[in-house]
Amino acid sequence: AVLPAKPENISCIFYYKKNFTCTWSPEKEANDTWYIVKRTYCYGRKSDHCTTGNSTSTNRTSCSFYPPTITIPDIYTIQVEAQNADGIIKSDTTKWILATIVKTEPPEIYSVKPVLGVKRMVQIKWKRPVLAPASTTLKYMLRFRTVNSAHWMEINFKEYFFGHATYNLMGLQAFTEYVVALQCVAEKSMFWSGWSQEKMGTTEEE
């Protein structure tokens, strides 16, 4: 009998309002092995599972849970069972606090403009991602460069109140065109969003 390898290195990420996805190793396992991912949620009050790993499925060491049973805040436990004809091997049980693994959509910048009479500054306005938790403060990373430079400069700041989406970028060169991009992260999470689309704006003449 050749039992499957014990599933390890379980890694999970919560794409807010989209899915909660876990992956594990070993990626390469015999074709006749399949997996059951057992989840407890609602602070341990509820449980369900998802299955993966029949020989035809492409990504065989990944499984996802979907709305409406993925809501923040919550604490999950995840255990992966590997099964083949000879038996079952269980992973350790892992614990996941959703607020620490949530990933949101990128913000959307809709304006980069100078403020009348204020030199060497542009005001950046964007939309808070719709798919970002209402209960979480967002941290932002802004990067900017002049159009003819390849060197990005970066600034971090935080959302002061829900929906706060304006930033005054100062200390720039006069009458110069800049490229700006923005990404965000839920305050306790380790996963930053992707970068927003780049947006351009020009500072006032001196």
């Binding site: 407890t40 602070y43 341990g44 009050r45 805040p73 604490i75 436990t77 350790d92 049980t93 614990k95």
Partner: peptide, 10 residues
């Protein structure tokens, strides 16, 4: 070991 979290949110 099945360590389900406490059942009450903080």
């Amino acid at each position: 070991s099945h360590m389900a979290p406490t059942n009450q949110p903080q």
